[in-house]
């Protein structure tokens, strides 16, 4: 019989971050019982190579494959079933784009008539010159002269917010920024979280009462910035022609800077505890942290962040 050499177990690791030891090789019987791995929500969990159903009765969706007339999971995650379609949603993965999604990205390359954008997806996204707005909102075809000054619009390393417009044949996504809400980002800070934690919301532009704006990109990139007044943003004729592609930050006062870092740290804490982000949750968390002693950076200490998460759990 093959077994593990057993050392005395040091301590029980209950947290998910902790390592996993084989304690007692004779727990085979117990394994049989929790074989279904039903979690508290009643949804079933899978691991790669677990057979789910027969392929004759069901259709295979994402995260599964068919072998020997069996539908088999290929990722670790939760099973979702719609009528005859069985899909497995991976618990952690890169961003899977869908048309209409709002994403935050960073320019990685300037190519003829297009930019390459890193958007946390399996390939860099493409932003065509034809799908950006010209400064001043002029409506016309892009000319050769525009092609030559593409770096005046976006340069390598610039951050932008855009919408997924379409897909190419190989699955790469095409973005567009043809709205006044989209375009270059400034006056703020970027935080990255696992994409699964950003749910589809009514609006992904959130203005917190503390004078901080948030853009929750569905790709898990989150932009936290100084609040921009509606009037400045929406103005038609009066709107700043150069401002859209400006690289220079506005003046940000000390209070706003602190608020921005506070919000970023809250997002980091929630992400490290794997809690999905919503606007109400963020506002609650902000209110809670303001009541606490200490500055924005003290939030990242383990005690305080655990306390934050616990307080949120009780409030909802």
């Amino acid at each position: 019989m093959i077994s593990f050499s057993s050392f005395p177990a040091t301590r029980e690791y209950a947290e998910f971050s902790g390592p996993h030891h084989p304690y007692d090789p004779s727990d085979d019987v117990e394994m049989e019982i929790d074989e279904d791995y039903l979690d508290t929500n009643g949804s079933k969990l899978t691991y790669p190579g677990e057979s789910l159903t027969s392929s004759q009765a069901y259709m295979r969706g994402h995260g599964t494959y068919v072998d020997n007339e069996e539908v088999i999971a290929s990722v670790a995650g939760t099973i979702e079933r719609v009528n005859k379609l069985v899909t497995v949603r991976a618990i952690r993965s890169r961003y899977n784009p869908e048309v209409g999604d709002l994403v935050v990205g960073r320019i990685t390359e300037v190519q003829p008539r297009r930019w390459k954008v890193d958007a946390n997806s399996r390939q860099d996204a493409v932003l065509m010159l034809s799908s950006v707005n010209l400064p001043g909102g002029v409506q016309r075809r892009k000319l050769e002269s525009d092609e030559l000054q593409m770096r005046n619009f976006f340069e390598e390393g610039d951050l932008l917010v855009a919408e997924v417009q379409a897909f190419f044949a190989d699955g790469a996504m095409s973005l567009h920024t043809r709205s006044l809400r989209y375009g270059k980002l400034r006056n703020g800070q970027l935080v990255t979280v696992p994409p699964i934690l950003v749910r589809r919301l009514k609006s992904h532009f959130i203005a917190l009462p503390c004078g901080v704006d948030l853009i929750l990109g569905l790709n898990g990139y989150i932009w936290v910035s100084k609040h921009v007044k509606e009037a400045e943003q929406e103005g038609e004729e009066g709107f700043d022609a150069e401002g859209v592609y400006s690289n220079i930050n506005d003046n940000i006062d000390e209070i706003t800077r602190t608020a921005i870092s506070r919000v970023t740290n809250i997002v980091r804490i929630l992400a490290s505890h794997f809690i999905p982000l919503t606007d109400t949750l963020l506002i609650e968390a902000y209110d809670w942290t303001v009541d606490q002693e200490g500055g924005a950076k003290d939030l990242l200490s383990e005690d305080l962040s655990d306390a934050l998460v616990t307080s949120l759990a009780f409030r909802v």
Binding site: E15, H20, Y37, D39, Y47, I91, R92, I196, H273, A313
Partner: peptide
């Protein structure tokens, strides 16, 4: 793997 998955799923649905 299952332990890790179920803790993450629980954390997400933990509200």
């Amino acid at each position: 793997v299952m332990g890790r998955t179920s803790t993450l799923v629980n954390a997400m649905g933990s509200r």
